[in-house]
């Protein structure tokens, strides 16, 4: 068997399908996107190469910058609201045990199982200023209940709440799995040493969850940048461009405004931003780990000396 795996033909046959898939489904479209980004292609008929014209225009396109700002806003929302909540809920669920644990795990994951289209329309009705659930609740408590949740000033918050709520279950489930993989012996040792719940969470759970947090946060940031379908169905970027997100704006330009070339230029900038975000996040997490390792080994060396 060992000899079989050293046969280059076998190695090639095993690697080639994946390689071809990567080349034709990812690399080639990216290369084509880069190429079309330099053209004025409308998506139909002929086109001409316009050099960096699309990129020059992009630099002055306020709608694009608004959409990018909203995407980053969402990423911050994910990191600062969704994920801390998801870790805490996962830790509490882990301690809950029994039927309650299974029940709440399912309940929190339900929004992820429901189709995005259903979610979007559900929230559209919840937010509706004339007959929506939210305004009716306000009325029930004696308020006026005539809030326009999708007004230019508040629409972005309304959209963020839906997106954070929708992705919460997924983040929580990954954290929950991570917590379950932590060796129980550590918790027992901590208990013997007299550590309370809070100390256990901050000193054992959180540090050991770092690899999971790293993966989860990176995924969250990328998904915030890629956000399209919920926003498209919920507000389609409106009113005006107040809830415009980068991926939705790309779609609008490429397919509605017949500006395929410009859409591709947005796509290229988008890929660069996504890659940069991934690299930065990896650096942030990696550096801390490395720093810690370096510090520890330094201390050990001092002690040895």
């Amino acid at each position: 068997m060992k000899k079989l795996y050293s046969n280059k033909l076998v190695i090639l046959s095993l690697v080639l399908p994946g390689l071809l898939l990567f080349v034709f489904a990812i690399l080639a479209p990216i290369c084509l996107s880069v190429y079309y980004g330099f053209t004025d292609y409308s998506g139909m008929g002929s086109y001409s190469v316009t050099g960096f014209e699309n990129y020059r225009e992009l630099m002055h396109d306020t709608a694009f910058w608004t959409s990018l700002r909203n995407s980053l806003f969402l990423a911050i929302g994910f990191i600062c609201i969704q994920h801390p909540l998801a870790i805490v809920v996962a830790a509490v669920l882990d301690k809950l045990g029994g039927r309650g644990e299974n029940f709440f795990r399912c309940v929190y994951f339900i929004p992820n199982v429901i189709s995005v289209a259903v979610i979007a329309y559900l929230w559209k009705f919840i937010y509706n200023p004339d007959f929506g659930l939210l305004n009716n609740i306000i009325k029930a408590f004696g308020g006026k209940g005539d809030v326009n949740w999708f007004s230019t000033d508040t629409a972005i918050w309304a959209v963020l709440i839906v997106l954070i709520w929708h992705g919460f279950g997924w983040g929580m489930l990954i954290y929950y799995t991570g917590i379950k993989n932590i060796d129980q012996v550590l918790y027992e040792a901590a208990a013997i040493d007299g550590a309370d719940q809070k100390t256990t969470f901050f000193r054992i759970t959180l540090p050991l969850m770092k690899p999971v947090i790293q993966v989860n946060v990176t995924m969250a940031v990328i998904s915030a940048l890629k956000q399209m379908e919920t926003v498209y169905l919920l507000t389609n970027g409106g009113p005006g461009n107040s809830t415009q997100f980068a991926a939705n704006y790309l779609y609008q330009q490429a397919f509605k405004a017949f500006r395929y070339g410009y859409g591709n230029a947005i796509g290229v900038v988008f890929i660069v931003i996504c890659l940069a975000a991934t690299v930065i996040l990896n650096k942030v997490f990696e550096d801390r780990d490395e720093r810690k390792v370096r510090r520890l080994s330094g201390r050990r060396e001092e002690k040895a000396a």
């Binding site: 230019t152 009113p239 005006g240 609008q252 509605k256 405004a257 017949f258 500006r259």
Partner: peptide, 21 residues
């Protein structure tokens, strides 16, 4: 007008009517 104009006016008309532009 061209579809770029169509996309623009259909998006911006919301902002001008509600006073944000």
């Amino acid at each position: 007008g061209p579809s770029v104009f169509k996309t623009s006016i259909e998006s911006e008309i919301q902002s001008v009517s509600n006073g944000s532009t």
